[in-house]
Simulated scan of single mutants.
Amino acid sequence: MDLDAYVAAHLPAWQRLESLTRQRRLTGAETDELVELYQRVGTHLSVVRTSAPDPSLVAYLSATLAKARTRAAGTRSVGWRGVAGFYTERFPAALYRLRYWWLGCLAGNVVVTAVMMLWLLDHPDVEQSLLSPGEIDQLVNHDVEGYYSEYAASHFAAQVWVNNAWVAALCIALGILGLPVLWLLFQNVANLAIIGSIMTRHDQGQHFWGLILPHGLLELTAVFVAGGTGLRLFWSWVEPRELTRTQSLAREGRTAGTIALGLVAVLAVSGAIEGFVTPSPLPTWARIGIGVTAEVAFWAYVFVLGRAAAHRGHTGDLGARVLEDRVATQA
C-alpha cells in the first residue's frame, strides 16, 4: 500500500474528526457525524496497522479515536461515579481474581512466622546474640508500648500509612523480579517473630498481641495482598499461558496498578486503627474486636462484593473503553 497516497485520501476525514472532538458543543447532526467518522477512522487505523504500520501514524489515529470515543461516550470514568465504580467493581474483582495468590502468600507467611517464633522460643541463646540484655529490657519494658504513643495520634496514623504503603508499593513494583518480594516479606515476618518471641519469653506475650492485633490483622493482610500481586506479576511472564509474554505482563501490570491504588484506602484504615485505637484506653478485647471487625469487613468485601463483580465480568483490568482503541470496522 502507498502510505502517502492513503494519508492524502483520508486526511480530511481525520482532521474533521479531530475538529469535532475539540468543539465545546455538538449539534445532533454533528454528533451523528462524529460517530460515523469514528467508525470510518477505526477502519483506517485497522488498515494502517495491517498494511503499513507506521508508528507515528498509528499513534495519531489511536489518540484521535480515543478523544472521539470519550466525546461520544461522555466522561463517565471521571468524578464520583468513577470512584464508586472502582471500589465496588474493579478493585474487589481484582482482589477476588488474584485471591489464590495472596491467600497463599498469607498462609505461607503465617506458617513461617509461627515456625520462627517456636524455634526462637526453644533457642534463647539466639535472642542473646541478636540483642544485648539492656536492649532487650528497653524493648520489653518501653519500646513496644511507647512506639504507639510517641506521637500525636493523627501524626502517627499518617506515618504508619506512609510506611505500610511504601512496603506494599515495593512488593508490587519489584514483583516482576520475584525474589525481592520474598525477601521483603521475610524481613517483615522475621521482625514480627523475633519481637514476638522476646515478648513472650518475658511474659509480655498477651500485652504484645493486644497491641499488634487491632491494626495488624488488616495491615498484614494488605501487605500479603501486595506480595501475592507482585508474585503474580512475576509469574505472568514466566508462564503467560495463551497470551504472549508482553500481553500477559501488560494485563497483570494493569491489574497490579488497580490493587496498588485500592490498597491505599485499605492501609489508610489500618493506619487509622493503629494511630487511634491501638494506643487508646479501651480494654484489650474492645481494641482487638475493632481489628477483627475491620478484617472481617475486608474478607466480606472480597468474597461477596468481589465475587459478584467477577461474575459480572470484571477482572480488575482496565475497561476496553480506556485501553488502546480496537473498534469495530466497516468496509
Rank of each mutant, 00 (worst) to 15 (best):
A272S: 13
A309T: 04
L323I: 04
A300Y: 01
V296L: 15
I290L: 15
L263M: 09
H311V: 07
G262D: 00
S280Q: 09
V266A: 06
E274D: 01
W285H: 12
R254W: 02
L243H: 15
V322R: 09
S270A: 13
A320G: 03
W285V: 13
L261T: 10
A250D: 13
G291W: 13
G316C: 01
G257S: 07
R307H: 00
V266D: 01
P279G: 12
G271R: 14
T255I: 07
A272L: 15
T246Y: 08
G262E: 03
G313P: 12
R251Q: 12
L282D: 04
R321N: 12
P281M: 13
A294H: 04
Q247I: 03
L249S: 14
E295M: 11
H311R: 15
Q247F: 03
L267T: 05
G306Y: 03
I288D: 02
A286F: 00
T293R: 07
R251D: 06
V292C: 14
V264E: 01
E242M: 00
A308R: 14
A286H: 03
L249P: 05
P240L: 08
A250K: 13
I273C: 12
A310D: 05
T278G: 15
T244C: 11
L323R: 13
T278V: 13
L243S: 15
A310E: 08
T293C: 15
G271C: 11
W299F: 14
V302C: 09
T258M: 05
P279W: 04
A297P: 08
P283C: 02
F276R: 12
A256R: 09
V322P: 04
S270C: 05
V322H: 09
V302W: 00
G319M: 04
I273S: 12
R245T: 11
A272I: 11
E252T: 05
Q247W: 06
P281Q: 12
G271V: 05
R287K: 15
A286G: 09
H311T: 11
T258P: 08
G275W: 01
F303W: 09
Q247M: 07
G275K: 05
G253E: 06
H311I: 10
G313T: 11
A256Y: 03
A260Y: 02
E242L: 02
A286K: 10
V304C: 03
T258R: 07
T284S: 15
L282M: 11
L305G: 02
T293V: 14
G289R: 09
A309Q: 09
L261G: 03
L263N: 07
